[in-house]
Simulated assay, not measured.
Amino acid sequence: MATTQQRFMRRGTTVFYFLKTIAAADNVPTRAELAATNATNLSTAISDVEGWSLENTPIDTPDMASTFATTIPGEDKADNSSFTFYEDMVADAIETLLSKGVVGFIVILRKGDIAGSKSMDVFPVRVGSRSPSYSTASEAAKFKVSFGITDEPVLDAAVPTAATGASE
């Protein structure tokens, strides 16, 4: 049985936030937290995205009854994750916000800001490095921020609604 899909392009849809804090112990932000002054929408400054996913390292479980080596799920690990940003010639707001050692949360609304959609991922992070990208090519100046994922991310959380201010 075939299902109907409405496909989309991430660029222009997916929204990326940096939050300094999230009050809930489950690391799911409220609508108020996404709109607060401690939340920064990074989307317009991002040139490139790397990582922001989990990988599982399977464990081999061969036995003497077969030449086929079976596996079981092993530990989960976050990919190396980073953003490449366009550099602002006048201001340094993002460089200051995401300086080395800063801790917080990257919140990704994969399908955009659609209240109730179970498409929000939250990554607890610490900035590992921030460095300029140098090039002789005819392109905009950029810098790269690499993040360490410091705790298990929350995947597929509901995007909070405006009416209740809480995620569902």
Rank of each mutant, 00 (worst) to 15 (best):
M89P: 00
I94R: 12
P132Y: 09
S119Y: 00
E95T: 03
Q6I: 07
G112A: 04
I46Y: 15
G112D: 06
T37F: 11
S117H: 10
G51H: 03
I94N: 04
A36D: 15
V103T: 15
G112V: 01
G116A: 12
T161E: 14
G74M: 09
K118M: 08
V159W: 11
N80I: 02
M9S: 10
V107R: 14
V159K: 13
L54S: 03
L19T: 09
L54K: 01
N56W: 03
L19M: 09
A137M: 12
V107L: 13
L34K: 01
A23Y: 03
L97S: 08
F68M: 06
G128Y: 10
F85T: 11
P124V: 04
A25W: 00
S53L: 05
D121P: 11
K142Q: 09
T150M: 06
T13H: 04
A36G: 15
N38P: 10
G101F: 03
A157N: 07
I114F: 10
T150Y: 09
V15D: 09
E33Y: 11
E95L: 02
R10S: 07
L109D: 10
F68K: 06
V127Y: 15
T30W: 06
R130V: 04
E75M: 10
A39E: 13
T44R: 14
S53M: 02
A115Q: 08
S119N: 02
P132D: 10
I59N: 01
P73K: 13
R130A: 08
R126S: 15
L98D: 14
F105I: 08
N27P: 01
A137R: 07
N41V: 14
K111R: 05
P62E: 05
V125G: 11
T150H: 07
D48K: 15
Y17T: 06
G74N: 13
F68P: 04
K20M: 00
G104A: 05
V103F: 12
